[in-house]
Design a protein around this nucleic acid. Structure first.
Lengths: 159, 159
DNA sequence: TCTTGAGCTAAAGTTAGGTTTAGGAATTAC
DNA sequence: GTAATTCCTAAACCTAACTTTAGCTCAAGA
């Protein structure tokens, strides 16, 4: 168990439960920046244990590695992050998180009003063309539940 | 625009906004089962427009194709799904969905008590070893925020 | 009819997020 | 001092969810 002069990748892996290969991958993705010792081996700050943990937690919330890299950019490069640094990053993280949950809840509520009730009255369906898909490669609106507004539901019942 | 005898893959693609290749892929994954016309081309039921839409919506909620296939299994094979069929499948879908949202909200609340407050008092952190990771390949508990319960935070402040 | 767009298959390529393998070099343990 | 770990890089491989490509056939319209 190394003390000063940084910790090894194996120890970091052991402490976080991550695979060594995953940590190297995170380095390649710019999520952590170890230095090298005389023999060329990676050395990490103890604070990177927390950093790795943050990555794992953010992933559970469904954030991509580039997004997480964005969050981590607000951490100081030169020194060990303080309480305040983490509080700041957490606030940022939390607001993205709230947004994500809100989107899911909104979608769920729309589902209730649409196929949730079994009515299948698509002209009023709120689920067609939701925000997410709206931003896609200029293909015009997508009528998600299968009907453009002017099409009547009856058409769907031919064999 | 074909009328009886089923619709073509191109028309289905146009109506749903999906790529033709995606629909073929869904067929390969068992999410839809078109028949073939005399010339060997795929023919879909009009009801498959709705089926495709359901797939797209479920994907927005983060369900995988195998999971979605599971939902769709409860739809009748031989006939056009009715109002009741969709209501049934939606209920099933909705309960999975609620569960997913609940998990996210729980995680968020834990985040508030952990890094959210900036206190970094990890011995009390509820985010270490959350349910999701607990089920992983028998590696023992993972202390997500970087500290096993008996380790004091001070250790992390060496350069 | 004939041409052109739509469809077909099989295989390869793509992105994300990694893991595995091969062949060495550095560290650690005894 | 030597043997066992650990670590190194580069490249290949993996899954999910598709897209692209190549070469060919089918179908629809002027």
């Amino acid at each position: 168990m190394p003390q000063s002069a940084g910790i090894s990748i194996g120890y970091l892996a052991e402490r976080t439960g991550l695979a060594v290969s995953a940590i190297r991958y995170y380095e390649a993705q710019g999520l952590v920046e170890p230095w090298r010792n005389a023999g060329g081996q990676r050395r990490f700050h103890r604070a990177d244990i927390r950093r790795m943990s943050f990555i794992m937690i953010a992933q559970q919330f469904g954030f991509s590695l580039p997004e997480i890299r964005g969050f981590l950019r607000s951490l100081p490069g030169g020194r060990t992050p303080t309480k305040e640094d983490w509080a700041f990053i957490s606030e940022n993280f939390r607001s993205h998180l709230d947004q994500r949950i809100e989107t899911l809840v909104k979608l769920r509520d729309n589902l209730d009003g649409c196929i949730g009730c079994g009515c299948l009255s698509l002209p009023n369906c709120k689920l067609y063309n939701p925000e997410d898909r709206a931003a896609q490669k200029g293909q015009g609106p997508r009528y998600l539940m299968g009907d453009s507004p002017e099409t009547e539901i009856a058409a769907e019942n031919d064999p």
